[in-house]
Amino acid sequence: MKRPANILLVEDNKMDVALTLDAFREARLENKIQLAANGQEALDYVFGHSKFSDRQKYPIPDIILLDLKLPGISGLDVLREIKNTNLVKRIPVIVLTSSREEGDRAMSYDLGANSYLVKPISFSGFIDVVRKISDYWFSLNVEPPR
């Protein structure tokens, strides 16, 4: 079996972070989850800048879970930057947001989001989402070449 995928979770709300991490544990998934608490941190991590320059400790993510509503540099800005940069543009980016707004959906797909998921309101819903992400993106989907 291949190694569990490395996930970068871009999320500023510490409660949503806790719920997501708990949902991964509850779904018995053993992925290594790295955290970025805002847009700048997300870009620093992806490009291996400043405190994330140690690639041993902070490996390039196999997949990115991206919240849209972030303070300062927004999730859409992060998405644009990633999808415009040759080295990292193939990393699948899953938008994970509470917004169903048409504008957000349109922009996300226009900028190259690989999937768009709406955060469920209940915890059991969260577990379900995390399981389905794992089933599809970590096992069914064939990863892009590095």
Binding site: N13, M15, D16, L19, P120, S122, F123
Partner: peptide, 11 residues
């Protein structure tokens, strides 16, 4: 967002 936290953690 806060509601998700209240409901999620109480669950």
């Amino acid at each position: 967002a806060p509601l998700r936290a209240i409901m999620g953690f109480s669950e």
